[in-house]
Amino acid sequence: MELNTGMACRRLDFRWPGRRTDEPLVLESVEVKFSPGTVSLVTGDTGSGKSTLLHLLAGLLRPTAGEVWADGLPVSRWPSRHRDPWRQQVGIVFQHLALIPDLTVGENLLLPMIPRQIAWSRMQEEILRQLADADLSALADAPTSALSGGQRQRLAIARALVARPRFILADEPTAFQDDCHAAQIRAQLCHAAHEGAVVVICSHDPRLRASDAIDRRYHLASATLTESSANR
């Protein structure tokens, strides 16, 4: 397998730590490559392990067996002191969004940029750009707790994109969106992919499954990930 660019899983197994070895694996022998410049969609039933796969790709979890490679580097094998800084190349959208409610919208976007040694003025410019893309410019000073569900989701996506990461991992990014905003999010993710990012989306959303913006589709079932060529 070509492992030079993009993100890849190699014979990836995952079982929750502390579970018995005779219990079934959450992910078994996952073999996949997500290339830069493409938008990949992973579908599957609830509880099939889509979020777990994203967390493994983001370096938040360690595989039970196998490896995650990023740009030709075996990041899943790395100790924390190397994996933590690598995570700056990842932008993740959690299913539960994980926004900080007492911070303003702008401050939530500032959060991933603080440790990145970027000038303050450039941080502000990036945040302005992301707010405009997410249709949240008027709400920069509003506390996050005052936003609607859809606005919060767009903010979570903006937070994942604001530092221009190399790998974008989004869990149900359009779940609370109307058609217009769902299309806007698709466009944002496509734009990131066209700029060279690896975009992996896990979703149930039929609008995403039907979208032309998706370059590759995968289905996760019975702990196994298979590529599906059809649009539906």
């Binding site: 983001a58 938040l60 924390s80 002191r81 933590d84 800084p85 995570r87 700056q88 190349q89 990842v90 993740i92 959690f94 994980a98 900080i100 959060l111 991933p112 603080i114 440790p115 990145r116 937070r159 530092a163 990461p165």
Partner: peptide, 19 residues
């Protein structure tokens, strides 16, 4: 939990300690 979020957003242990 807050620190876990920071780490998932690219903060290292050293960054959190520095903060």
């Amino acid at each position: 939990a807050h620190w876990g979020l920071l780490k998932s957003l690219g903060w290292t242990t050293a960054d959190i300690v520095r903060l």
